[in-house]
C-alpha cells in the first residue's frame, strides 16, 4: 500500500491536486484507507483533514473497502423522476444488501451517486466503469447475472 501511494505521488510530482492523486490511489487500491489518506496529505503538504474532506465528498471516492464490482445507482433529479427507487429496491433484493453495503462474498458493493451524465437514458446506473441506462427491474436482474 505504502509503495503504491508513493508511486502515485511521484507520478504527480509536485502537483498539489488532491482529487487527481486520490483518484489514482483509489484505482490502484480499490478504496482509500486512512493510512493512504495520511500519506497523501504528508506527500502533498496539506492537512489530513483537507484530504479526508475531498475523499468523503465525492461519491466515486470511497474510504471503506469496496467489493469486486461497484454498483452506483444515480439519484439525481432525472433518475429520481424516472423512479430510480425501484431500481435500488431491485438491486437490494437481488443481492441482499442495502445502500453502502458490500456482499459477504465481497463481489458487489451498492452505492448511490450524484449525476453520472446519463440523464438521456434515466434511470441509469454504473457497474464499475460501464453505464447501463433505461433500466427496468427485469433489465437489472439480467445485467446482474452477467457479474455473478
Amino acid at each position: 500500500m505504502e509503495k503504491v501511494v508513493e508511486e502515485v505521488l511521484n507520478r504527480h510530482n509536485n502537483n498539489t491536486s488532491i482529487l487527481s492523486v486520490l483518484k489514482d490511489v483509489q484505482e490502484k487500491c480499490r478504496y482509500l484507507p486512512e493510512e493512504a489518506i495520511s500519506q497523501v496529505a504528508e506527500g502533498l503538504g496539506v492537512s489530513i483533514n483537507e484530504v479526508y474532506e475531498v475523499a468523503t465528498f465525492y461519491s466515486f471516492l470511497s474510504t471503506g473497502l469496496l467489493g469486486e464490482n461497484v454498483i452506483r445507482i444515480c439519484k439525481s433529479t432525472p433518475c429520481f423522476l424516472k423512479s430510480c427507487d425501484v431500481i435500488v429496491e431491485t438491486v437490494e433484493k437481488e443481492l441482499g444488501i442495502g445502500i453502502g453495503q458490500t456482499t459477504e462474498d465481497n463481489k458487489f458493493s451498492l452505492q448511490l451517486t450524484n449525476c453520472i451524465g446519463a440523464c438521456d437514458k434515466a434511470p441509469a446506473m454504473m457497474i464499475n466503469d460501464k453505464i447501463y441506462g433505461n433500466l427496468t427491474s427485469e433489465k437489472v436482474i439480467e445485467i446482474l447475472k452477467e457479474y455473478k
Binding site: S47, I48, N49, Y52, T56
Partner: peptide, 26 residues
C-alpha cells in the same frame, strides 16, 4: 482550528445533508 490555532484537527466529512464536522478522520 486550522487557520487560527493551527491545530488541524477539525474538518468536514461527506456532503449535502450528510455533511458533518469531524475531528481527525471521524
Amino acid at each position: 482550528c486550522n487557520d487560527m490555532a493551527g491545530n488541524q484537527v477539525l474538518g468536514i466529512s461527506n456532503r449535502g445533508s450528510k455533511a458533518q464536522i469531524i475531528s481527525d478522520m471521524g
